[in-house]
Amino acid sequence: MNEKTMLDDDHYENVIREESVCTSENLVYERPETLLDTPLHYCPGCGHGVVHRIIAEVVDELGIQEETIGVAPVGCAVFAYNYLNIDMSEAAHGRASAVATGIKRVLPEKYVFSYQGDGDLAAIGTGETIHTCNRGENLLIIFINNGIYGMTGGQMAPTTLPGMKSTTSPFGRDVKSMGAPLKITDLVAQLPGTYYVTRQSVHKPANVRKTKKAILKGFQFQKENKGTCFVEVVSNCPSNWKMTPLESNKFLEDQMLPFYPLGDLKNPERKEK
């Protein structure tokens, strides 16, 4: 804000004229083919949009748009199918990995992924998550963990941090009566069916690049029929955390990451070395 008001109008116009006009020569960043030209409904600063873009970029780079089928969850990302230009199925709450299993079993040559939030994947859909991973279904599960129910307006999630306030833990999550946060990614990493399990974030450019690599790997391993790949993205919810996007990224780094440390929980490539 301050920066903007310090600049005079002339300067602005020059910037627009000289730097902001896209030509084929200076174009360094564009909408991936797999991302539809639809304005995202996500709140400003929310991680969902970034992860959508990453998926679209990876699908483009692998050239698999025609062979990829996605499954959307119930939650803020319920409309993921409005943004991703691939065939998609919208699952009932928690059932995305069962729906993805159904698709993958009858179309084993396609790339199938589910995109799920914490309430969807780690509360109502825990059973499906565990058994999908345990069977080692050849699909990619992308798990957005922001420790809160976004779409329904900020209720406690299975991953809400101890002491963290939500509309249903207004005095902070009391682990004695509400249970401790469920580290489902650690759990699925224990299952023989999972092949690659990692926890990433998208709150900084370097992390965005790492998440992209993880999702890319998830699709590549799927081609090799390796088993379930599971990519957790520790994300934010500025709206329901009641923070600005910047504050939410700080909270993510200071509070979420110590509890949900980033890195691979299971990486076959590393084992082989």
Partner: peptide
């Protein structure tokens, strides 16, 4: 033919949803 014993009827009907969506 694909035969899969699901972990529950909740899962099996949702597998049907996914697979039926492919027109099989």
């Amino acid at each position: 033919m694909v035969i899969l014993q699901a972990e529950s009827e909740v899962a099996s009907i949702n597998m049907v949803y996914g697979a039926a969506g492919t027109g099989k």
